[in-house]
Nucleic acid binder design. Structure first.
Length: 485
RNA sequence: GACCCCAUCGUCUAGCGGUUAGGACACCACCCUUUCAAGGUGGUAACACGGGUUCGAUCCCCGUUGGGGUCGCCA
């Protein structure tokens, strides 16, 4: 018990010291081999949150180390995605591919210092070693046969790091706690390929050091890399960064995130009508449960702590994402909603359209969950109903009830209404209904259909107010022409 | 297979030795009601299992089971 406390205390002291020693710099380092998916977005977000909380810097580095697989399209998709989300870099984006000379120099220096060595093992030999290692139940594959062979530089040789063969490496991970690995389980991994290009392990470590990254926050699929990278950091004499390995996101079936689940590009969520702030708020809640559920980013940054993050993987739940999106949509001002809608539709509204939407859009944001739905719903304001109605249910209702509804009366009365608020208009209609001593629905439903062409529309008062006097009377006149007697 | 990690309602989580195990999404019922929503009220539903430690374990330790990650001249 006391030991436990002391250990925890000691752990915190060490973390605290590390924090004080240098300023906080985090980085999001995606590889442009595919789209930016929500797992990556969450990693970026956590890096951003942590940096903001500590008043530090959040940087973005594109890990495009050669690769036949990394494409300019993917780079653009990542940059656009981050921009859309508001998770752009605090400084110019770094491109790893531009720094290969520096990476190579570090490797060559390590060779000179005897901390790395040339290896000329063939692919066949390696395959054999792999098979043997697997058969013997070993994690370490390479048997270090070139380690002391003293091979001079030649073509077709790679450079490997001399990893300690004894001892243990421990990481005080800010998320995972203390994790250890026997060094003997670690490979003498490759720093420079036979063609002289640096591997990810080399590039990543050198760039993190050169960019003064203080805290490496990434997916826990990198835990094993951390043990290996630390060996290189020590060999090169770089300062050791702090680590925070966050659990990966899983699909709704508990399996790894795949294209079937959420591994779609963020642009997909954009076209589906999700708001950046809602997507981010949702993602933030996976593995971090502090504060209110709906929590604006700036407030989240204030109370964010890596140590509060769950160590367990979370599944994505699209129903919940939708709920978050709906919540943000519902609480949005008309002005903002109109701007979002215009951006989503990629259009400019005419000034009459703008006026109608400015008056009526939030009667719609209350009943839609995404911008896509909002955009569809907004058509009732943007376009008058076309007669005969395409909505069969509405057409039937209208045919059955319109003759009794007194739409002509409403049309006439509307001429004297002020159209200054949804409430007063609703009262006006209610007054008419009371006068005739019938139920509100007898008039409300046909009127709604007359004005919108569908039954799925807001409160009568809200519709009237949004449309305004002229549009209301025009639409009513058309509807009246289509009443069957 | 070896190594590393994880484990509270279906899902996301709160909990940090003593709680009627709390909240949210989803689901169900009811209320409100001019449609559709929203909102309100209530409900179903969880500490994976087995050993310890302790007066007392969801919580600490060990094991089992289950899940995930890693084992590339990919990143």
């Amino acid at each position: 018990m006391r030991n436990q406390c002391l250990r925890v205390f000691d752990h915190h002291i060490r973390l605290f010291r590390k924090t004080l020693m240098s300023s906080i710099v985090t980085r999001f380092a995606p590889s442009p081999t595919g789209m930016l998916h929500i797992g990556g977005v969450r990693t970026a977000l956590i890096n951003w949150l942590f940096a903001r909380h500590h008043g530090g810097q959040y940087l973005v580095r594109i890990e495009d180390t050669d690769r036949k697989r990394s494409t300019p399209e993917a780079v653009k998709a990542i940059e656009d995605g981050l921009e859309w989300l508001g998770l752009g870099s605090d400084q110019d984006i770094a491109y790893q591919s531009t720094r290969q000379a520096r990476h190579r120099a570090v490797a060559e220096q390590l060779v000179q210092q005897g901390k790395a060595y040339y290896c000329q093992c063939s692919t066949e030999e390696l395959t054999e070693m792999r098979t043997t290692a697997r058969a013997e139940g070993r994690t370490r594959v390479y048997d270090r046969r070139c380690r002391d062979a003293d091979i001079a530089t030649e073509a077709e040789t790679v450079v490997r790091l001399k990893v300690p063969t004894t001892g243990e490496t421990t990481i005080d991970d800010w998320v995972q706690g203390s994790i250890s690995m026997q060094n003997d389980h670690l490979d003498d991994y490759i720093l420079l390929r036979a063609d002289g290009t640096p591997t990810y392990m080399l590039s990543c470590v050198v760039d993190d050091a050169d960019m003064n990254i203080s805290h490496i926050i990434r997916g826990d699929d990198h835990i094993n890399n951390a043990f290996r990278q630390i060996q290189l950091i020590r060999a090169a004499g770089f300062p050791e960064p702090a680590y925070g390995h966050i659990p990966l996101l899983h699909g709704d079936d508990g399996a790894k995130l795949s294209k079937r689940h959420g591994a779609l590009g963020v642009d997909h969520y954009r076209t589906e009508g999700y708001l950046p702030e809602a997507l981010l708020n949702y993602l933030m809640r996976l593995g971090w449960g502090k504060g209110e559920e709906i929590l604006p980013l700036a407030q989240a940054a204030e109370i964010f702590a890596l140590s509060d993050m769950s160590k367990a993987a979370a599944r994505v739940d699209f129903a919940r994402l939708k709920y978050f999106n709906a919540s943000y949509l519902r609480n949005m001002s008309n002005e903002k909603a109109v701007a979002h809608l215009a951006a989503y539709r990629d259009c400019v509204f005419s000034s009459p359209e703008q006026e109608i939407l400015l008056r009526g859009l939030n009667s719609l944001t209350q009943r839609t969950e995404t911008l896509e739905e909002l955009s569809n719903a907004a058509n009732i304001y943007l376009y008058p109903p076309i007669w005969p109605l395409v909505d069969q249910k509405a057409a039937k209702q209208f045919a059955a009830k319109a003759s009794d509804a007194g739409l002509q009366d409403i049309h006439r009365l509307a001429g004297s209404w002020a159209f200054d608020s949804a409430e007063s208009l609703k009262e006006a209609v209610a007054g008419y209904v009371t006068e005739r001593n019938i139920g509100f629905g007898k008039v409300g439903q046909p009127l709604r259909i007359a004005l919108c062409g569908t039954m799925q529309a807001p409160d009568i008062g809200e519709i009237l107010y949004a449309l305004g006097a002229d549009e209301t009377k025009n639409r009513l006149a058309h509807a009246i022409e289509n009443i069957e007697n």
